[in-house]
Measured scan of single mutants.
Amino acid sequence: KKVTINGVEIKFNNPEEAVKFALELAKRLNLRIEFHGDQIKIE
């Protein structure tokens, strides 16, 4: 399963991993996060 985070394609074994990764990243950098299907936007 491929997920695009800020235009960067990252391959994950499952979608939950991708979501956890994105949330952790957003929390660490104190950023806002948006989900659009397989696209995750962090700003």
Results as ranks from 00 to 15, higher is better:
2 K>E: 04
30 N>W: 11
42 I>L: 13
40 I>D: 01
41 K>E: 04
36 H>W: 13
4 T>C: 15
22 A>P: 00
36 H>L: 12
24 E>L: 08
23 L>A: 04
43 E>N: 11
13 N>G: 09
28 R>T: 05
42 I>Y: 00
34 E>C: 14
40 I>S: 01
6 N>S: 05
1 K>M: 15
40 I>R: 01
10 I>C: 15
16 E>P: 04
31 L>M: 12
37 G>S: 07
1 K>T: 14
12 F>N: 01
23 L>E: 11
35 F>V: 08
25 L>P: 00
41 K>V: 14
14 N>S: 13
36 H>E: 11
20 K>T: 04
8 V>R: 09
37 G>V: 07
5 I>W: 10
43 E>T: 15
25 L>W: 06
18 A>K: 03
23 L>I: 11
26 A>T: 03
41 K>W: 14
39 Q>I: 14
3 V>S: 02
29 L>E: 05
43 E>Y: 15
14 N>K: 07
10 I>P: 00
31 L>R: 00
15 P>V: 13
19 V>E: 05
31 L>T: 03
43 E>A: 09
12 F>E: 00
9 E>W: 10
42 I>N: 04
40 I>M: 04
36 H>N: 11
35 F>T: 03
7 G>Q: 04
14 N>H: 07
30 N>I: 07
7 G>L: 11
20 K>F: 09
4 T>F: 14
37 G>I: 06
36 H>C: 14
36 H>Q: 10
26 A>G: 03
2 K>N: 09
31 L>I: 11
24 E>Q: 08
33 I>K: 00
15 P>E: 10
16 E>A: 10
28 R>N: 06
8 V>C: 15
12 F>M: 03
28 R>W: 12
6 N>H: 10
12 F>K: 00
38 D>E: 05
42 I>R: 01
1 K>G: 10
21 F>Q: 05
28 R>I: 13
36 H>G: 07
35 F>N: 01
9 E>Q: 07
33 I>T: 01
7 G>Y: 09
20 K>E: 09
8 V>Q: 05
17 E>M: 10
10 I>Y: 12
6 N>Y: 11
7 G>W: 11
23 L>N: 06
4 T>L: 13
26 A>D: 00
41 K>I: 14
34 E>A: 05
26 A>P: 00
13 N>R: 13
39 Q>V: 14
2 K>S: 12
34 E>D: 04
16 E>V: 11
28 R>M: 10
25 L>I: 10
40 I>N: 01
27 K>H: 09
41 K>Q: 06
29 L>D: 02
1 K>P: 13
26 A>I: 08
19 V>D: 02
39 Q>N: 13
15 P>W: 15
32 R>I: 12
32 R>V: 12
12 F>T: 02
32 R>Y: 10
37 G>N: 09
33 I>A: 01
38 D>F: 11
43 E>W: 14
15 P>Q: 09
10 I>E: 01
22 A>N: 00
22 A>R: 00
29 L>W: 05
42 I>A: 00
39 Q>E: 13
10 I>Q: 01
10 I>K: 02
11 K>H: 14
25 L>R: 00
34 E>S: 11
28 R>F: 08
41 K>N: 09
18 A>G: 04
11 K>I: 13
28 R>K: 08
32 R>A: 06
23 L>W: 08
6 N>V: 13
3 V>T: 04
36 H>V: 12
18 A>H: 03
36 H>D: 12
32 R>Q: 09
20 K>V: 04
42 I>G: 01
33 I>Q: 00
23 L>D: 04
23 L>Q: 06
18 A>F: 14
24 E>G: 05
42 I>F: 06
19 V>P: 01
41 K>L: 13
